[in-house]
Design a protein around this nucleic acid. Structure first.
Lengths: 188, 188
DNA sequence: TTGGGGCTATACAAAACGGTATACATTGCT
DNA sequence: AGCAATGTATACCGTTTTGTATAGCCCCAA
């Protein structure tokens, strides 16, 4: 991908997260990125398209990072789902963490007909399915049920952390997750 | 409170929830409320002030409703905290439910210096303290720890429901809550 | 009847918004 | 050398934004 296009994407991601999507004009984006609107609109047809691209990149970054982390474990499937929230904590407590894009975007575009909302919804579903797979591999009986619970913990903890950084929500969610995983495991 | 002021508040609440705050102009609000901008700006100095008023009213409505529900129980403190998520489910699955205001607002105004964000943060904290009190009355040892977990479940389930209505997140959160409450109770 | 308060109607201001048009500079390839 | 692609600079367009100014209407009370 072109270097300027990537720069625009990265700057947009940062600004959208820290100021909000609707509160960030394209003029601001190009000013921070050190380019002009003409260039931005060469790579992105509309602002909506830019937002969608930002969402996709953010989600892929997170998913890839998590996949790598879990993949490098070389442990049992049971161990992998146990470690899921340790990695989530690592991601969320990183200083560069500014929130999860699809959570904020879905709040800013609540209408279910809206493309941005739809993509957010899809990404939320994808991450839940990802957890479901982990649970299935760990031979958990009600894999979908556990995955839904864990995804709620994830989104709740992220939401809490977005509303107040350093709230300790992640640690708490991690503990709750371990409890729920233990119980679901015993039932299998 | 003046009837027109209340109408403006109610219409604003509805529009902010269904279209987003930044995507809703004051022109739209007064058009739907059947009044004019002059009247709106008579009761609310700025749009920000209106948003803050909407947040306050929404939060108070929810808290009052929940207090009434729990108060009418006449049961043991243990029973009350057990029923908390039943009432949350009742609130969230109501057809008129369009989300929790402070969750959406905090996403739309991510900057912690922003007054709207600060109020959202405060309301989130207030609700957590409310749960803490329930847990303390139920003689739960780590009341704050449990309350934090339950508030994460609450915010996560609401977030999930905002992203996709009828996702079943509330039912799942309710089950998880019962599990966590049981365990916290046994440890007391 | 004569005010005055609450509200409407409408026009306006100044800025910010997304997006486009045009002209020019730079760079690399052939 | 010459061409094409990439990017810059800048001016502009139409719309929408929050917020105000002005003038008039309606109704109730003294």
């Amino acid at each position: 991908m072109n270097v300027l296009k990537q720069k625009i994407l990265q700057v947009s991601t940062d600004l959208f997260q820290t100021r909000g999507i609707n509160s960030t004009g394209v003029d601001t984006i190009v000013a921070v990125a050190g380019t002009t609107k003409m260039t931005l609109y060469k790579y992105f047809e509309t602002k909506e398209e830019l937002v969608l691209a930002v969402l996709q990149q953010s989600h892929q970054d997170f998913q890839s990072w998590m996949n790598d982390k879990l993949g490098s474990l070389n442990g049992s499937p049971n161990e992998r789902i146990q470690k899921l929230f340790d990695f989530i904590e690592e991601w969320v407590t990183s200083p560069s963490f500014t929130g999860i894009a699809f959570i904020k975007a879905s709040a800013e575009f609540p209408n279910e007909e809206n493309r941005i909302h739809q993509l957010s919804s899809q990404q939320s579903r994808e991450f839940r399915q990802f957890i479901t797979k982990l649970a299935q591999e760990a031979n958990i009986k009600d894999a979908e049920g556990l995955a839904l619970q864990l995804s709620i913990l994830f989104e709740g903890a992220v939401q809490a952390e977005q509303i107040k950084r350093g709230s300790g929500a992640i640690k708490s969610a991690k503990k709750a997750a371990k409890t729920l995983i233990d119980i679901a495991t015993k039932q299998s």
